[in-house]
């Protein structure tokens, strides 16, 4: 066999114990009874077999609650699978919730180092990136002020700039292109495309089907925690769009 793929999932299942989560009654009422097992665990993902090869950019599509975010968090190592096995090789960058990890009492530079430390990037490497990050985020004069004084747009821009300052092997994205104003959105889009090209594997969760068609080489559709379609992005997304239009009518 050839080189090991950057991402390999084997019969992966992730479940939530609904007794610990308060959402029990709400979720139960939704017609998803098949996703509960005998013990009352809710399986957000089940029987996922997935191999992502070098150079692939995979769009994950599907309705709300299909398991898209759970899949990304599992790939990032934030959630551990409850069954099956997972292997992800290389450095990982996640763009899941932009701006997570910031501390209000620290200024921009200190927050950059803090997020770098959360990510496990050495301080010396992170320090070199500070001017570039601040420049990209357009923070300028506010670099020495505490983040609590920032507007929500500045926060989001800084968060995006920090999260995309690394060069990951595996890039996991959960719909973050809608950050900031129009001019920043274009800049962010360019930065994302650049990162996507450099990364060995990209998994991109989105509801923006046209951008998924434009960026991605492959697409998988999730429904009820299972992969129901997998193939070239264009054909899978076209079929999905057709299906969605059908249900609306």
């Amino acid at each position: 066999m050839g080189a090991t793929p950057p991402i390999l999932l084997n019969n992966v299942g992730v479940r939530y114990n609904m007794r610990l989560k308060k959402k029990r009654t709400l979720r139960r009422s939704i017609t998803q009874a098949s996703r509960f097992d005998a013990k009352g665990h809710f399986w957000a993902l089940r029987n996922i077999d997935l191999e992502i090869k070098d150079g692939e950019t995979v769009a994950v599509i599907g309705g709300n609650g299909a398991g898209k975010s759970t899949l990304l968090m599992t790939l990032a190592g934030i959630l551990a699978p409850d069954e099956g096995s997972i292997a992800v090789y290389g450095s990982i960058a996640t763009l899941l919730h932009v701006g997570a990890g910031f501390d209000d009492e620290l200024n921009a530079e200190e927050n950059i180092l803090l997020v770098g430390a959360f990510l496990g990037v050495p301080a010396s490497a992170m320090r070199k990136k500070i001017p570039e990050i601040i420049d990209f985020a357009g923070i300028g004069d506010f670099a020495k002020s505490e983040v609590r004084t920032y507007s929500s747009g500045m926060r989001a821009r800084l968060g995006f700039a920090v999260a995309t300052s690394v060069n990951p092997d595996v890039l996991l994205i959960d719909e973050v292109l809608s950050t900031g104003d129009a001019s920043f959105r274009d800049k962010a889009r360019d930065r994302m495309l650049e990162l996507m090209q450099k990364a060995r594997a990209v998994v991109y969760v989105t509801h923006d089907l046209s951008s998924a068609k434009a960026f991605c080489t492959r697409s998988i559709e999730l429904e009820g925690g299972k992969i129901i379609a997998d193939g070239p992005a264009r054909s899978i997304i076209d079929a999905y769009e057709k299906k969605m239009r059908g249900t609306l009518r």
Binding site: L75, G77, Y89, I92, D169
Partner: peptide
Amino acid sequence: ATASLRLTVG
């Protein structure tokens, strides 16, 4: 493991 990359998750 691929020679160049280390296993990060799993």
